[in-house]
Design a protein around this nucleic acid. Sequence first.
DNA 1: CAAGTGACGTGTTCCATATAACGTCACTCA
DNA 2: TGAGTGACGTTATATGGAACACGTCACTTG
Lengths: 202, 202
Amino acid sequence: MRPAGNGQRGPVDHERREQILGAANEHFRHYGYKKTTVADLAKAIGLSTAYIYKFFDSKRAIGEEICRQCHDRVMTDIEGVVRSGKPASERLRLIFLTLARDGIDLLFNDRKMHDIVLAALEEGWSTATDFDAELLLHVRSVIADGRETGEFERKTPLEEACRGVVLALQPVRHPVLLEFNHNTLVEDASLLAGLVLRSLSA
Amino acid sequence: MRPAGNGQRGPVDHERREQILGAANEHFRHYGYKKTTVADLAKAIGLSTAYIYKFFDSKRAIGEEICRQCHDRVMTDIEGVVRSGKPASERLRLIFLTLARDGIDLLFNDRKMHDIVLAALEEGWSTATDFDAELLLHVRSVIADGRETGEFERKTPLEEACRGVVLALQPVRHPVLLEFNHNTLVEDASLLAGLVLRSLSA
DNA sequence: CAAGTGACGTGTTCCATATAACGTCACTCA
DNA sequence: TGAGTGACGTTATATGGAACACGTCACTTG
């Protein structure tokens, strides 16, 4: 079966994995997820198609990994905001703006990458729900902070407030809506942030 | 050219138009917009394809009319809420819930009709933006009422508040998001309404 | 002249089939 | 023995030609 039991499929040889992911990153970025074949990736690193499957269960598994990297990049930005030490309201506003900007960035500067995010949504990859969960965590921590410092009101149940905020983020986040709204997206993000902050303020 | 100058294409004979629209309504509902042909409509009323074009410029024009009727039905519900004489906050909450429910209704009870709404969005029919504009009007009137009665705060510029609320409505309104979220839609609408009301409250 | 149509050019959509991609397995060979 | 592959069955996608839909126009008929 699988050459080794190190959690991932594949041998201890962690390097090959990275090689494959590197090739995937380039190819997905240039040609999009659907249009690059596993054979393309194999050729890029000078090995056979079959060998790829020693390291990944499927093309989709490669896609998920790359998708996760995409999400991680955005999430890193969000974490930077969360940890910035600014007032909670400011951090929350920045979360809105950051998501909007990163969304636009992904959509325009990396248009081909964008289609992997869509695939993830359409085919229900776990990366999408993972991202949601992580985002909710960050939002909750900022709101909780704000409540502790007295910046935010404390009457509304915390969970309810958090879920509301995450919902309100949707128009700024969802790739499909981005396509329709990108021209006013940052403005929209700012408006929504204003509304959300008013709803939270003590 | 056109047989008469009564604003619409077509003769004074207003009846034929209604006949065509009636057939369109049925066919679009049963088979969807894309799958019904102009010939189908013609056959349904026992006339020739060519004759349809005496009354409508195009198939799309028929679609837009039907789409407008769909939107009108929803808008009537909204108007009912707006005129209900209830407190502004209650009316605003009901707007959220009504849109959610009507959206679900259109999506599930009238699945085939739903595809005309999508076509409208994708192809940029005016009906979609008309609906948005009208919705904004209603939201503004409710918010203005609430400000007059002292229910809502008055610091935030009215336009900003309105646009924020309409944006926050998006997750409940947009057909594409409905597909993803329908299972929790009414709940989501309620959460968002709560958030919005907190943001507006005096 | 007003109501209504057949036939046609042009652009789409289907559909069958050829081609290619996915993923597996038994295998090689240093 | 473990890095690496060729060949293959199955599923998905590309392709191109036939059928069909849209919309126009000259035309018939009462």
